[in-house]
Write a protein that binds this DNA or RNA. Sequence first.
DNA 1: GTCTATACTCGGATAGAC
DNA 2: GTCTATCCGAGTATAGAC
Lengths: 190, 190
Amino acid sequence: MDTRGKMLDAAEHVMRTKGLARATTKEIARESGFSEAALYKHFRDKTDLFLAVLRERTPGHLPALLAELAERPGRGNLRVNLLEVVQTAIEFYGETFPMAASTFSEPALLAAHKDALVERGAGPQHVRDALTQYLAREQDLGWLAAEADPAAAAALLLGACFMQAFLGNFTDQAGPSPESLVDALLARVA
Amino acid sequence: MDTRGKMLDAAEHVMRTKGLARATTKEIARESGFSEAALYKHFRDKTDLFLAVLRERTPGHLPALLAELAERPGRGNLRVNLLEVVQTAIEFYGETFPMAASTFSEPALLAAHKDALVERGAGPQHVRDALTQYLAREQDLGWLAAEADPAAAAALLLGACFMQAFLGNFTDQAGPSPESLVDALLARVA
DNA sequence: GTCTATACTCGGATAGAC
DNA sequence: GTCTATCCGAGTATAGAC
């Protein structure tokens, strides 16, 4: 692993464990094994470092799964596929929510991150759009009722996963199971 | 309005406009019209002030609506009631999400806030539970299909509203309408 | 490329007068 | 209860040597 990569790893680790507010250049330097000065040779400033972490250390299994489903709509059946989507989404949001949420404490960082996402055509809404398109495809193929609303169904399903990632930090009691979520959505619609 | 109230208002305003990270005691003192020293006569420290804002300046219209529905299940019909829940929830989460999310940048503050919520039997999961109970009541009364899953339905509906509050900060394109969300959930289930 | 040392600023908190 | 003044520590960033 190169120097820059070690710095990104250290920054991510500190951000996750101590929180964005306590993710100082001193702490990140110490954790990475390099000096603070070295940090500034690889990143313009602290914001640049954080944006790099958000850009290069965000897990991609949920987008990857949705991309895979888009190319193979016939694979397995709808319910099984959605179940995998829910399980992957709960994991994905569980990993990404704390850091994404943290950026709301620094509007300048949030705005810069948003701009960076727009720049490269990414962002959280694209995940929802991808699921919407997958559902529309299944609908075209006849596996989802014609009256169903793909966009609304995607918003409901991913919303429940997203909220669960948030609630997990406030209570120990588990929410509805993935199966019950998918079934509540598909019951008599599929 | 008393001194303490003005300080809370100022703190909330600064937190909302500049973000939690830039909500300094200096800035809050300036905005409230009092000195920093005065701040510390009314609040033990900065964390105490923030917790007070979270406790006393969180809007209550969504919990209020759910409490009202619980006492009057027969009022209007299910679809109309859920539509009002969705509209109120989108507004509620839109107002509360930025500040709630910000606390993830300071794990100590988040933990203290969580403990305070547990202490007084409150918290975001109670909103979801309240909707679940309302749906279960409607189910008992026969307005919701016996096979429906109240807990899953509540998680789906509120999750979509919650996520919309988040996505609103990343894209201008509106998500599914409240009507489409409710209808997607009730279609052939109710 | 990396280090040590340091400059500079800002934020939290308190002392003491009124 | 509120103010002015101030202390102290921490955090970002840079200078300059190697």
